[in-house]
């Protein structure tokens, strides 16, 4: 494991202002078109990596982005009430999860995940943001420093603690094994 201790990393954030969302689903439309093969050859919001949770009569409109796949649904669920409005169970969760219809390819059930419109050359803004003219979705990029490597004294102290607990032999064996795997 080698890491250049001062390399900056880019964090891409889509900021979602649910108060500005007008429920139009343009984000879903264009996302699905972008990921069609060939590009833009079809559209189908069921394949989109962003879905708008809409409950018009509760005045609820929440664009949610597809995150990680999960094989099993959560045993415990959450349900939020904000400003007097009760949101559906799991409303804010990004998982592609067996308990919901979103974020799966309709025919194969393969999980979908937002890739920030990865492409070459890269886009200046993700497409869902570009197509959201009401600015419910905006895009922000910022650079962060990689967490610096811990100082050597700290490593020494950590190893000493482990040796006190398990004995030096065991720590040496473990280090050797890990180094080989690396």
């Amino acid at each position: 494991m080698t890491s250049d201790s001062s390399k900056p990393r880019t964090i891409k954030t889509i900021k979602i202002n649910v108060d500005k969302c007008n429920g139009c689903r343009a984000c879903e439309v264009i996302c699905s078109a972008f990921h069609a093969q060939p590009r833009y050859s079809s559209t189908n919001p069921a394949r989109a990596r962003v879905r708008v949770i809409r409950e018009p009569l509760a005045s609820i409109y929440v664009p949610v982005y597809a995150g990680e796949y999960t094989a099993a649904e959560c045993a415990g669920r959450d349900k939020y009430t904000i400003d007097g409005k009760e949101y559906a169970e799991c409303a804010f969760c990004r998982a592609s999860c067996p308990s919901r219809g979103f974020f799966k390819e309709p025919d194969s059930d393969l999980p979908l995940k937002c890739d920030m419109c990865e492409s070459d050359p890269s886009l200046k803004e993700p497409l869902c943001v570009q197509w959201c003219l009401t600015d419910a979705l905006t895009f922000e990029e910022r650079q962060v420093e990689e967490t610096p490597a811990p100082a050597p004294e700290e490593v020494d102290a950590g190893l000493e603690a482990l040796a006190n607990k398990h004995g030096w032999d065991k720590v040496r064996d473990a280090l050797g094994r890990l180094a080989k795997e690396e």
Binding site: G23, R25, Y61, T134
Partner: peptide
């Protein structure tokens, strides 16, 4: 309480 659009349109001619 909210301006609303139709499918895939930015114009928000409607309202809740």
């Amino acid at each position: 309480t909210r301006l609303l659009s139709c499918y895939n349109c930015p114009m928000k001619c409607g309202a809740a």
